[in-house]
């Protein structure tokens, strides 16, 4: 008896799914003639229930709610980058910093800097980057560092895609997203000065002075660990520094986007969704980071 009831529960659910997907009630009843008399009224009631419940929110309400949700989103403080150390107990942080400092300049750290996700030395690479962030107190320095880390993540995404590793592409994309969000959340001084300087330049001369761009590659990997900088007075970020960073970042955004696009074009179908996600994250992340420098 119990078995029969369970069988009927299954048949009812199967028919319900089929009818929801577009089959007629009659077709399903024809497949189960022994149960048809009991099934039909239940299916009709279920369909009536589903139809009655399928109300749409009013468009005005939908717009208002969406606006309020987006406003609440804008008011939220971006989450501090949940980097390597945020998941570890304090003693692990201390030990990791000491070990990385001791290894600085050694072959291990240099080798780790070229490692890829999933490789033995990759956690050393992550720890090294986290230590670099700890010893980069200024917002401008952090922004440059995040820009370099984003370049590394994009390189990893492309290399992992070449190896056909979808999961690793997704993980590297998440790390890329964290870097870009963290960069967009930095409080980099000099924005008002820049605006004033731009107005002054505009009023004083028809052509603004060209902004000198220091190549990012020149400062990258000078040493694997950046020398610890003493936390001094508030950084003096002139408008040119800010504009230099903005120019640099926009150049990297374009180059990285093109590299990802080329990887997407060359990728097999199985990798395309993951690379599309990376393209989406890069486009939105760089846009937010650049807006933060306006």
């Amino acid at each position: 008896m119990m078995k029969k009831v369970r069988e009927f529960d299954n048949i009812l659910d199967e028919c319900l799914e089929r009818v929801i997907k577009g089959e007629t009630v009659e077709v399903c009843l024809a497949d189960y003639p022994d149960y048809a008399a009991e099934l039909e009224p239940l299916l009709r009631t279920a369909l009536d229930t589903r139809e009655a419940a399928a109300i749409e929110p009013r468009p005005e309400f939908r717009d208002k709610a969406r606006y309020q949700f987006q406003a609440a989103l804008r008011e939220m403080e971006p989450e501090k980058s949940r980097g390597f150390f945020s998941w570890q107990p304090r003693w692990v942080t201390v030990v990791a910093i000491v070990v990385v400092l001791l290894l600085a300049g050694s072959g291990t750290v240099v080798a780790a800097s070229n490692s890829l996700p999933g490789e033995f030395l990759y956690p050393v690479k992550m720890a090294t980057e986290a230590v670099q962030l700890v010893f980069t107190p200024s917002a401008l320095g952090k922004a440059e560092l995040y820009a370099r880390l984003a370049d590394k993540r994009i390189d990893e995404i492309i290399r992992m895609a070449e190896k056909g590793k979808v999961k690793q592409v997704e993980r590297a994309t998440e790390r890329l997203n964290s870097h870009l969000i963290a960069m967009a959340a930095l409080d980099i001084p000099g924005g008002e000065e820049l605006l004033e300087a731009e107005i002054a330049t505009f009023e004083a001369a028809p052509a603004p002075a060209p902004v000198e761009e220091a190549p990012l590659a020149a400062v990258e990997e000078e040493s694997v660990i950046a020398a610890p900088r003493a936390a001094g007075p508030p950084e003096d970020v002139g408008p040119n520094e800010r504009a230099r960073l903005r120019g640099l970042l926009s150049r990297h955004a374009v180059e990285n986007w093109n590299a990802l696009l080329a990887a997407w074009e060359a990728a097999p179908e199985s990798l395309r969704a993951a690379l599309e996600q990376a393209l989406e994250v890069a486009a939105a992340g760089y846009e937010q980071a650049l807006r933060n420098l306006e």
């Binding site: 939220m76 971006p78 989406e280």
Partner: peptide, 16 residues
């Protein structure tokens, strides 16, 4: 993209 990774991004307050 799987839901777990979408949620992880949401927890990092990613607006998208």
């Amino acid at each position: 993209q799987d839901e777990e990774s979408l949620i992880r991004r949401a927890q990092q307050r990613d607006p998208m």
